[in-house]
Every structure is written in structure tokens, then in C-alpha cells.
Design a protein around this nucleic acid. Structure first.
Lengths: 195, 195, 195, 195
DNA sequence: GATGAATGAGCTTTCATTCAT
DNA sequence: CATGAATGAAAGCTCATTCAT
């Protein structure tokens, strides 16, 4: 009834988070101006002020999602490893996303569904993919990166669909087989170029 | 205006095909009773007779899709190979789906988006996955099958997102590395068990 | 799946009972061909065979209701009374219908709502009213009968609306005041005419 | 065709009146969003803005009806009577509602039909009943009020169903018999308590 | 006679978007 | 800048009724 909200910093972010929550729960179609406004406690009439069309809103939300997920990917991959086989990092990454992180899985799936039909969403994934690969190139060859990324994608996706329990050993064995036992690069080398 | 159409065999299939076409073009949300009825040239009032709820309709359509895609997967994998390395078949499969088959990609992506949130769609993919793996087990070990399947999934998906041209050689090299150079099994052996 | 039902006597009655049950639960609007067919375990396509229009069905159902309720009214009033004040019978009648018999109350209310707008339903109540009054004339004057009937109607109706507990004493006192203490007629006298 | 109608005060009331008109003519089921919008000359899309669900609309309309009918009841009962037997007022009330006021009768019947099944409508009648009784208590004992109210209800209802002409004398005789010939209270005494 | 299949009409409701303030 | 009020369009779904068999 009485929401003064003269200045409301962070409103934009709060809206976008609400959008993502609703998509996670009900799919992209579930994030309507109405449902989002209610979830974010924002007057409905203001929605179009911040995001002129519903599509603007979705695009912005998925943009935020892409950022967040890139960061997490980076964090796991970027930590310097002391004498550890970098392939173990990949295994960890797949295991982390494969078991749990259901919300992200749902959101990613929705994003992919939009991306295969709409350029604007596709570029979102493209830049995210590029950054993931850049992260991977810190430890692996430029040729290996896209393939590792694809295996990661497929394994995580399937693990969320399958009824079988997640099998880390099988993943490890696959990752080790896929990636040649490269010499562990020193931590300060930013990325490895293909010779 | 005057469509008697008292008996109309194949109507159900025509509807489902229309549903898939519309989903491919506009996403799941685009397959409304109205749009489908028009596309399939069926009176709107009849739609709910065949599919009481819109969800029934979508589920049936994706069921049909799963069948069709299983068949194609099977066909490529099932042909007997004479002295050929079976891994080449996998390469071919990925190349086929990676370049082109945009319609199937879009449909799959929509199906996954539904599957991660809804059990009923998930089982559709599960049975399809199981059959794909069974196909793969004709040539590879039971342990390798899920991983090959996942790599296939990830590479195809990424190739539809990426701007880079599809690189068969990189795929081949990845597939060969992932799968141990197993002795080519005789064509009449149905499936290979892990030792 | 397999309901042979070659001959199905009593089907008509089963249907009508189902209609009344549904009206009691959901109002007249709730008794659709579909809902009734399901409740009576009768094929939907057969409904229009027994009752060509929905209105025929409702009318028949309310006709059945009127019959049933007349019978109950008669039963309570018709029993010979030995030296008992007949006004006590009226009190009993009101008490019986006032507390409980919610189903009948709902059905009556629906019937009245139809009757005030539709002649065909009105005659149903008229004949039922006439019989009630005839019953009452067995014990009371022709002039008293309609008024007793009206008091009965009003008290029962209000008791189903009111939150106060049903108060028999107040009813008795009202009934006794309304009806002059007529001499108890011999049980074999069918009805009393106004002099 | 071109209705700017940016601001339209009284729109809400106009809608509710249209609802009652339609219910009077076609029953509760006849007051659809469509029919009401047309009757009140309001865009259909606006209906749900003012009344989010059809039930909200009906409830509001019957609320308005209850108010209107309370007022009329009050007016007839509240006028000070100079030396007149207050029981004559009751006779007049019954006569007024018994002959004519068909629209109100239809609306009341529909309201009762809803009330016996739905608490929300029931409270509407309850408050209306309470106010009627309060009005009656200005002239009669607290014990008599509910009974007079019930007789009123029953007689009016039956008079709208019956084919017989309305008989004022019979009503008067009944009312006088039911209510003890209380001493006429002075007009300024608000209500009479039971001794 | 009895019924499964079919459908035109209409219903309630949701929604993206507009716009005056 | 921000928003409450409003609305055209369309959605999912229900239903009485028809009719060939």
C-alpha cells in the first residue's frame, strides 16, 4: 500500500534477479512484466520504464546471468595450481556443475533455447564461450580448449537429464584421455599458443 | 469455409508435425492451439478433442520428435561397417548434426529447456539417450558410450552457437583421443561388454 | 474402457441423481453434459439421446427432486397423530429441514432461482406447493395452510443462512401463535374445508 | 468505435448495475464479462482491471444489491408512525414486495442460490438480515423480529411463485396473529428490548 | 437405438504495452 | 522521472450440440 521508494538504487539488479528466479521456476514464459514486478516489489507501470519491452528485460537478465556464470567458471579455473595436474580442475568443474546447480542448468537451457533462434541471445553465449575458452587456454592448448568446453557442456547437460548417479571416475578418465598429458605450465603464463 | 472433413486419417500426425514446425520457428510458446490449428488446417475446436490440454499436445509432439531423431541416430550408427574404424562413424554423426540440421537443434534445445524442469519431458530424453548409448555400445565399451554421447551433444550444441566454421579435423582428433583404438569388432556382434 | 451396458435399466434415474448431486455441489451451471455423463458413468454421446437439450435434463432432474421432497413432506405430515397437537408436526417439519438437509436446501434455492425466471420450473414448484398445502389442510384450515407453508419456507431458508443456532422454542412459539388452537380433527378426516 | 473515455467516473457503478440487470434477465450465468462489458459500454479488456475475476464482479454486484435493498426496507420501516399499529407496516412491506418488484425477487433468488453454497455470499445476506431485524426491533420484540422476517420472506417468495392473486387480507390476518398486539411504542424509542 | 467423433461459439483470464499525469 | 489506469489482442479451455455409423 505505501511504498515510498523515492530513490531505489539497485532496483534494476533486483528486477533482473527476479526475472532469473522466475525463469528458473517457470521458464522464460513465466517471467511476465506482472510476475516480475510483484517478485521484485516494483510497480508494474515502472517495468516498461526500465525495460521498454519484455524482450529487453529478458535479454538484460540473461546478460546478467552470463556474467555471473563466467565469473564462477573463471574462479575455478583461474586459481593458481601448485604442481597439480590442470586436468583435475576440469574434472572438478564438471563435477561441480554436474551434481547440483540445478538453477543454473535450467537457466542455461532456457538461454540455449533462445540462442539457437535469436542472434541477440546467441552473442551472449558466444562471448561467454570465448571467455571460458580463454580460461582454459591458460592451461591447455588452443586446440584442446573448445573440445574440453564441449565435453564439459555435454557431460553436465546429460548428468542433469540422466537418472544415473554422477560418476566422477568416468569423467576423470574421459578428461584425461581427451587431453594429452601436457607439461604443467608455470602459473604466470597467461595463455598457451598453439605452436 | 466448407471443410466437411468428416473422416480425416493422419490428422493427429499432421497436427504434431505442425506443432514441431511452429516450435522450430517460434519456440514452444509459439505453438498455441490457434497457430497449430491454422497450420494444420484443423478447426480450433477440434484441437482440444485430440489433445485436451496444450501440454498434452506439446508432450506428444516432442514424443514424436524423439522417435524421429532416435531413428536417424540409429540409422547412421547401425549400418555395418566393413573394416572401417567405428570412431569414424561418430565423427560423421557429429559433423552431420553440427553442420546443418538447424531445425532439429532448435527443437532439441526447446526440449531440453522443458526437460530440466519437467519430469515428463525428461523421460523422453532419457529413453532416447538410452537408445543412443545402446547404438554406441555396438561398437564401443559400455563405459565409453555415455562419454561419446556427451561429447557429441556438446560439440553439436556449441557448433550451432559458435561463429567459427565447423572443424571436422578437430572433432576427429578429439574423438580418436577420447576413444581407445579398440579392435574393430566383427559386424555381427550386437554389443560389446566391458571386460 | 469396456463398458458393455447393452441394456441399462435405471440409467435415466441414475443420470438424474447425478444431475442433482452436481447441482448440489456446483450449482446449476455445474451440471454439464460432460460432468453428468462422467458422474453417472454414461457415455457422453448418449446424454443427448436421453435428454435432447441440457435444459430438458435440468427440468427432469428438478421434477424428480420435487417428487422426492413432496414425498418426504407428506410422510411427516400424513402420519396419524393420536391426541397430539397437529401444530407440533409443523414445528417438527421446520426443525427437521432447518437443521441439516443442506443438500435439499441448495437444490431448492437453485430451483427457486430458475423458477422466478422460467415458467416451466415455476409449475414444478406450484404443484409441489399445492400438495404441501393439501397435506396441511388435513390438519388446518384452508386459509391457514398457505401461511404455514410460507412461514415454514422462510424459517428454513433463514436458518440455513443465519449463523445463530436453530431455536426450536422460538419456532414453536411462532407456529402456535400463527395457528389458532383448532380442535384436533379425527385422523380419518382427509382434509378440512373452510366453512 | 472511438471511445476515448480516458477518465470515466462512475464506471464501476455502471458496470455493477449492468451486472444486476443481466442477472435479473438471464441469471447469474448470464452476466459474463462479455455481456456486461457490452451492456455497460466498457471495453472488455477493462473489465478485469476493475474486477480481476468474474466472481469478484458478481460479489461486488450483489453487495451493491444488498445495500440497495436494505435501504428500501429501512425506509418503509423507519418512517415514524402516528398512532398507527406498527404491524400494518409489516403488512405493507409484504404487500409491496409480494406484488411486483419482480426484478428484486429474481436477484434475491439468485443471491440465495449462491449463498447456500458460498460463505462469501452468505455474509452478504447475513448483514442484510441483521439490519432488517434491527429495523423490526424498533417496533417489535427481539424475539419476534426474526420470525416476522421469516414470514415476510416466505410470503413474498411464494407470492412470486404462486398463480393465485396476492391476498392482502390473509397476510394481514397472519401478521396480526403472529405478533402479539404490543402497545404502540412512542416514535422516538429506538428499539424495544424483550422484558 | 446408442454413441464416438467432431466443432462453432463463447468463456474467463492473462498480458504487453500505451499514455496522461 | 515514474506510475496507475487502461485496453486490444490473444490465449487456453469448456461446452452444448450435431451427426455418421
Amino acid at each position: 500500500m505505501n511504498r515510498p521508494r523515492r530513490t531505489d538504487p539497485g532496483r534494476r539488479e533486483r528486477i533482473l534477479d527476479a526475472v532469473l528466479d522466475l525463469i528458473a521456476r517457470d521458464g522464460s514464459a513465466g517471467a511476465t512484466y506482472r510476475s516480475v514486478a510483484e517478485a521484485a516489489d516494483v510497480p508494474m507501470g515502472s517495468m516498461t520504464y526500465h525495460f521498454p519491452t519484455r524482450d529487453d528485460m529478458l535479454l538484460a537478465a540473461f546478460g546478467r546471468l552470463a556474467e555471473q556464470m563466467q565469473e564462477r567458471f573463471d574462479q575455478i579455473m583461474a586459481e593458481p595450481l601448485e604442481g597439480e595436474d590442470p586436468r583435475e580442475r576440469v574434472v572438478q568443474l564438471i563435477a561441480t556443475h554436474g551434481a547440483g546447480y540445478g538453477r543454473d542448468m535450467v537457466l542455461s537451457a532456457e538461454l540455449y533455447a533462445l540462442a539457437v533462434r535469436d542472434e541477440r541471445y546467441r552473442v551472449l553465449i558466444q562471448s561467454w564461450m570465448e571467455r571460458s575458452r580463454a580460461s582454459l587456454r591458460r592451461h591447455f592448448s588452443a586446440d584442446a580448449a573448445p573440445v574440453i568446453d564441449a565435453l564439459h557442456e555435454g557431460l553436465v547437460l546429460h548428468s542433469h537429464i540422466s537418472t544415473e548417479p554422477f560418476d566422477v571416475d568416468r569423467v576423470r578418465s574421459a578428461v584425461y584421455r581427451l587431453i594429452e598429458p601436457a607439461p604443467i605450465p608455470p602459473a604466470d603464463v597467461p595463455a598457451q599458443e598453439t605452436p
